[in-house]
Simulated assay, not measured.
Amino acid sequence: MVKSCGSRIYTPHGRGLWRKILIQWPRFQQCIKWNLCRGNKISFWEDEWLGEGCLMRRYPRIYAIAQNKKIAVEEAYRVTKEKVKWSVFISRNLNDWEISEYGDLLKILEAQQLKTNDDLVVWKLEKKGEFSVTSYCRFLCARDDTDCSSFPAVQIWMTKAPPRIAFFAWEGCWEKILTIDKFSVRGQILINGCYCCFQAEETCNHLLLWCPMPYNLWCMVHGLLGIEWVIAGSVGMEICA
């Protein structure tokens, strides 16, 4: 049996870091396929290893009545008297409209044979089959109708700034800095007010741009550099400018 990467995690991080990672697993799974070898790492139904798409979507009627939906490929593979036999166990007898689908499944399985090597993961978004952050970002942006070119990657990551400064700028660009307004999303009720100016709520853009204290600092820096500056609507827009 294969333990899917999409399974629920019962660990101290199961409700935090790993929960966020697992939310994105269905998207990530669309970008990978498996080269069948030993078959011990591949989920028979859920992974893409036999043509385009996983078997659970190509044969939904058979998947619905399968006895074990978490079975590994090697568990469905049988060699008896030098003959290869694939066993797809179902929980009941087939109906007339399910027979052809079941037959098609067994037909494509007959040509498959297991090997002794480990199963290999192939990244579908690159010709070489190797994972790259760039290709995955483009995939996510295309799905979300987001223009990747609008993100100031060069201004953040391609500078001589220390890594922790670059990471803080990245957090600010996505408005992920842990300000007071973020605590309400987590169910913690706090009085939301900027402790620098006591004039507005504490948000990422206010704390880094609109508050009088950082605003005066930005004006001083731009004045020393001889740059005419107009405050932007957000941190991301400011970095792009």
Score class of each variant (00 low, 15 high):
M1S: 09
V2W: 12
V2Q: 05
V2T: 07
S4E: 10
R15Q: 15
R15F: 04
L17V: 08
W18T: 14
I21Y: 15
L22E: 13
L22T: 15
W25Y: 14
W25C: 10
P26G: 02
Q29G: 03
I32G: 04
K33C: 04
K33T: 05
W34E: 06
N35C: 10
L36C: 09
N40M: 14
S43C: 10
F44M: 05
F44D: 03
E46D: 07
D47Y: 04
E48M: 08
L50W: 00
G53Q: 02
C54T: 05
M56W: 01
Y63R: 02
I65E: 00
A66E: 09
Q67N: 15
N68E: 15
Y77N: 01
R78V: 12
T80F: 13
T80S: 13
K85H: 07
K85V: 08
V88P: 04
D96T: 12
D96I: 11
E98A: 04
E110V: 07
Q112N: 14
Q113M: 14
K115I: 11
K115A: 13
T116S: 08
D118K: 10
D119K: 02
V121C: 00
K124R: 05
L125V: 06
E126S: 11
K128P: 09
E130N: 14
E130I: 15
T134V: 06
R138Q: 06
R138I: 02
F139A: 03
L140D: 01
C141P: 03
D145W: 12
D147V: 12
S149E: 15
S149C: 13
P152V: 05
V154R: 13
I156K: 01
W157D: 03
W157I: 00
M158H: 09
T159L: 07
A161F: 15
G172K: 01
C173K: 02
E175R: 04
K176F: 10
I180Q: 05
K182M: 03
V185S: 04
R186F: 14
N192G: 06
C196I: 11
E201P: 10
T203F: 01
L208K: 07
W210Y: 14
P212W: 01
M213F: 09
W218E: 03
M220C: 11
V221S: 09
V221F: 06
H222I: 06
L225W: 04
G226C: 05
W229P: 05
W229R: 02
V230G: 02
G233M: 06
S234I: 02
V235Y: 02
E238H: 00
I239D: 03
C240E: 08
